[in-house]
């Protein structure tokens, strides 16, 4: 037996799951971005001042792309795990020879594929209007990958904990969405008065947004080293938590 076949099979299964539902999983964030471009680019955009020397719509595109990555990765992992708990197919998976670390990696990997695919499509659609390429491609890739890992892991934990769809929606609506919106998608924290500026510095999503913006536009608010190390450390910690929870069979093994 080739040792990686079980892992890649689970990745294939998970990718198959979201790809089959492409109208629900991939297209909606692209449509939302087009609407933002329409509203902020061609309608309201001219009334808003430039930020860091960029037209307003261009300034918010990195945040929209990051938002697509974050939501795509989170909902991929949490809905897949929750559904697998619901139809009990998770029990079948746990009875197979797959190791806990392989299961976690497979869920992360499929979340990453969905998240990065959405982020990339958003950028292709949005930047094609402005004819500018990302300024620092590898920085952008770094932030796409790590934010996807972070939110896939969070999705795994949420999916394991959830007993109802409602609890998953609560996390998305009342925690992730406010953090994303207040993380600087639509504004630079330079524009905020104190103490809100300080408060924003404690929002972990701010560093992810800021790093992504640097990758695309070449401008940033926070020191880059903070953003780089913060995203990597959080991703690593959450990955460790996921592996541990799978190993003990948290809410899965009686």
């Amino acid at each position: 037996m080739k040792p990686l076949i079980p892992f890649f099979t689970l990745v294939r299964q998970e990718v198959y799951r979201f790809w089959r539902l492409i109208k629900q999983t991939i297209f909606p964030p692209i449509v939302t971005t087009l609407l933002y471009i329409l509203i902020f680019g061609f309608s309201l955009g001219s009334r808003i001042q430039e930020i860091h020397g960029f037209p307003y719509i261009l300034f918010i595109i990195p945040g929209l792309a990051a938002m697509g990555v974050i939501n795509g990765s989170f909902s991929n992992a949490c809905s897949s795990l929750y559904m697998a708990k619901f139809d009990r197919s998770l029990e079948n998976l746990l009875a197979t020879p797959l190791r806990p670390v392989e299961m976690v990696l497979a869920y992360i990997f499929s979340g990453l594929m969905r998240g990065v695919l959405i982020g990339t499509l958003i950028l292709i659609v949005a930047l094609s209007f402005f004819k500018i390429p990302p300024q620092h491609f590898f920085v952008l890739l770094y932030f796409f990958i790590f934010q996807s890992v972070i939110f896939s892991c969070w999705g795994i934990i949420a999916g394991m904990r959830a007993k109802t769809w409602d609890s998953l929606a609560t996390i998305e609506n009342f925690i992730i969405t406010p953090l994303v919106y207040l993380g600087g998608v639509f504004y630079s924290i330079d524009l905020l008065p104190q103490p809100w500026r300080m408060v924003s510095m404690f929002n972990p999503l701010f560093y992810i947004m800021d790093g992504t913006r640097y990758g695309i536009l070449g401008v940033h608010d926070a020191p880059l080293l903070y953003s780089f190390s913060f995203t990597a450390i959080v991703a690593l910690i959450l990955f460790g938590v996921c592996v541990y929870l799978f190993q003990i069979g948290y809410r899965m093994v009686r």
Partner: peptide
């Protein structure tokens, strides 16, 4: 597909 994936989980 269910059977195809199951085989893969066992290394086929």
């Amino acid at each position: 597909k269910i059977l195809e994936f199951q085989g893969g989980f066992y290394g086929l």
